[in-house]
Design a protein around this nucleic acid. Structure first.
Lengths: 197, 197
DNA sequence: TGTACATCAGTGAACGCGCGTTCACTGATGTAC
DNA sequence: TGTACATCAGTGAACGCGCGTTCACTGATGTAC
């Protein structure tokens, strides 16, 4: 138990929770005992680093939001055409959700686990992503690729559309009989056409 | 305890479960004890009519699907233009979800509560609705209102889009800062434009 | 340099709770003689 | 018509389980003299 390594356990706990959440795709299936086991530690030691389970899950969520941001940013590398940026953002969003279903559930499909007021306006991790989306939509309008509409409304709508595909994939893996690529392509194409001047 | 009224309790249980589900908007928050209390009966008596909790919830779901079908069908009364039918169907779907968030969650947002194979192909309650949606899309194509695309793919996409708005409303009631009407209008308008020839 | 002490991350065991479910029962209802 | 019996929907109490969390503790680590 070397003195300075107190934070390493904290990191281990976060990582283990993240991994378990990714495996089971269900928050309530991830027990504190299971997390402790995965880290190789007894349950009470988690409470040295997190006040309760909610705080732990929330911390994992904040991290996951950052990953989503990074995931999206990375997908944009080299894309300068605003419409192309929008398409890539959409694909990245869907891919992220499909690859991290449990995290996505907690972030966007769970029942009030995150009360959005827990974050102040600027820290709220998803907000940066959303504002970038608004910017891209506005860029499309300025470039004459989109009709001149309210960029905020349009961005919200586009977000809802992409979220629809993502959450359907997650919640009903077998049902949408249309292939993932086909559905994504259709949706992105539809948005492009529907927003055209 | 008159002999012939055995089925009345069954109905009462279904109704109470439905009501509790609607109130709490969370399946795991609805306990068998709570259901029994609401009916005015002891918990074990539920097991006279349903093998276990899953069967009870599933029965409520099947009912709810029927209501969704009826809700949609009712919204179409008198609408003969295929595009108008599609719009009404979309609005009905969103309204149904917003009004019955817990049921909607279980039907379309829960984790495999319903394994779709529990229903054979023709009984599956949502399927009828979906096939009607496919028909309406095909009608739009035939009437020259939509581009000639694969109606099944388009219907799936449109469903995903409407589902996106609905589930976002349910899961993140505060967040989409855009008013419900505005968002719905935007989405339906976008679909209409995007599908236009 | 050596010893006594304070610190505090992590331990082991348990608490209390709510859950789905089971089981032996009861007592009103319908039936057979 | 009256009595003894079978039926069976619903009861009351409890079981076993897993959960989040608490609490008194331990023992290696760093520190003071």
């Amino acid at each position: 138990l070397p003195r300075g390594e107190g934070d390493r356990l904290r990191e281990d706990i976060l990582a283990a929770t993240e991994a378990l959440l990714l495996e089971t795709a269900d928050e309530s299936a991830v027990a504190m005992r299971a997390i402790a086991d995965a880290v190789g530690v007894t349950p009470p030691s988690i409470y040295m680093h997190f006040a309760d389970k909610d705080e732990l899950i929330l911390a994992v969520c904040a991290r996951q939001f950052e990953k989503l941001d990074a995931y999206a940013a990375n997908s944009l590398r080299g894309a300068r055409d605003p419409l192309e940026r929008l398409r890539r953002r959409g694909r990245a969003y869907i891919a992220f959700g499909v690859e991290h279903p449990a995290h996505y559930r907690i972030l966007f499909m769970s029942k009030q686990r995150i009360s959005w007021s827990d974050f102040d306006d600027d820290t709220m991790p998803g907000k940066r992503s959303f504002l970038q989306l608004v910017d891209d939509v506005q860029a499309c309008i300025d470039a004459g690729r989109f009709r001149p509409v309210d960029a905020f409304v349009a961005a919200t709508g586009i977000w809802a559309i992409v979220h629809g595909v993502t959450s359907l994939r997650i919640a009903m893996p077998g049902f949408p009989l249309v292939g993932e690529e086909v559905l994504t392509d259709f949706i992105l194409d539809l948005v492009g056409r529907g927003m055209a001047p």
